[in-house]
Amino acid sequence: MDSQQTLRAQMRAVTISREYGSGGGEIARRLAAKLQWQLIDHDFVVRIAQTLGVSEHEVELQDEYSQSVMARILSSMRAVDPALLVDATSGQATTEEGYHQALVSVVEAVAREGHVVIVGRGAQKILERQRDVLHVRIVAPLEKRITYVVQRENLDRDAARNRILQKDRHRERYLQNYYHVNSSEPHLYDLVLNTGIIDMDSCADIISLALERKANRLTVAEHELGPGIGSPRYPSRPQDFRSPNNPL
C-alpha cells in the first residue's frame, strides 16, 4: 500500500450530498470504485430490500427519506447485518421519528465499519462531528441537470424539470425538519464541486485528493487548524478598495 492509500485508509467515510440531476450518485459510484470502498446508495438499499422480500418497484416508489418501505428496510437491516444494530423488534420505525432514528443508526453503523461512500441520507449532518469523514456537495446549474435527467431517465424536459424540483424539495424538507439546515449551506461541507464545469472523473479525482489531504490533518490538534495557522501578517494594515468615483 502506497503512502496515499495509507493516508486515505485512515478516513472512515465520504458523504456525498447532491442536487438531483447533478451526477452526484454517479460520482459516488466512480469514487467508491477508485477507492475500493463500499458504496451506500439507492442500489445498496435495493439489494437489502430484495434480501428482505421487498420488491425493487416498492423501493422505487419511495425517496431516500420516505417512511413506509424504507422504514421496513432500515428497521430490518439488523437481520441482514447484525453490525448495523437497528432494532427490528421495537416497531419504532413505523413512525416518522422511529424511521429517522433507524436511518441515523444505519449511517452511524456503516461509518463505524469504515471505508464507505454514503450518498445522501443526511449523512453530512449525522457525521458532521467526525474528523475522519470527508463531506462533499455536488451541484450543477438547473438547465444542465435537466439535460442529465432527460438523458438518464428518458423524460421530456418539462417532466425532468418537475422531477428535479420535487426531489430537491423533498430532501430540503427532511433536512429542515430534523436538522434545521439547508443542504446548500456551504459550511456543512469540506468541498463543493460544480459538474456544470468539472467532469465526473475529475470530480472523483479531486475528492480522492481531498480525502488524502484531510487524512493528513487528523493528528493536528483542533486549536492548530484554520486559515490563521502559519499565515504571516500583512506587511501593512489592509485598506478597503476605493473606487475612483467614490474615494471616501
Rank of each mutant, 00 (worst) to 15 (best):
E108I: 05
A33L: 05
V192E: 10
Q176T: 09
L84Y: 13
T89N: 13
V14E: 11
L165Q: 15
V149D: 05
L165Y: 05
R152P: 00
R137P: 05
R121I: 11
Q5W: 05
Y99S: 01
V110I: 07
G91K: 02
S236E: 15
P247F: 00
D87C: 08
L142M: 13
E26Q: 10
D132N: 15
Y99H: 11
Y99D: 01
S66T: 14
V69G: 04
V220L: 05
I164T: 02
S68E: 09
Q50R: 11
S105H: 10
D201M: 09
S75G: 13
V14D: 09
K144G: 10
H170N: 10
P141K: 01
R129W: 03
D81Q: 00
A102Y: 02
L127V: 08
E128V: 11
H170V: 09
Y99E: 04
R12G: 10
K144W: 15
Q176Y: 03
R217I: 06
G53S: 08
I40Q: 07
A215G: 09
Q92L: 14
P247A: 12
I197N: 03
Y234F: 15
E222R: 07
V181F: 15
I118L: 02
V117M: 12
V149C: 00
E26F: 09
A28G: 13
A9F: 12
V46C: 13
H135M: 09
R171F: 00
Y189W: 12
S55R: 06
S66W: 00
T95K: 03
I206T: 11
K214E: 00
A221F: 02
V69E: 04
L31Q: 00
A71D: 00
A49C: 04
A33C: 00
R163W: 01
R30H: 05
N162L: 14
H170I: 07
I138E: 00
N162H: 12
L191N: 09
G122E: 02
G98K: 05
S55A: 06
G226K: 07
G114T: 07
R145F: 01
A204E: 13
E113K: 14
H115L: 01
R171E: 02
L191C: 03
I27N: 07
A160N: 07
G91S: 04
P82L: 06
Y179W: 13
S231V: 12
L127C: 11
L127F: 14
A111V: 04
T219S: 15
R242F: 11
G24M: 11
S236M: 07
L188W: 03
A32M: 06
A210W: 10
E58W: 03
A93F: 06
R30Y: 03
R171M: 02
T6K: 15
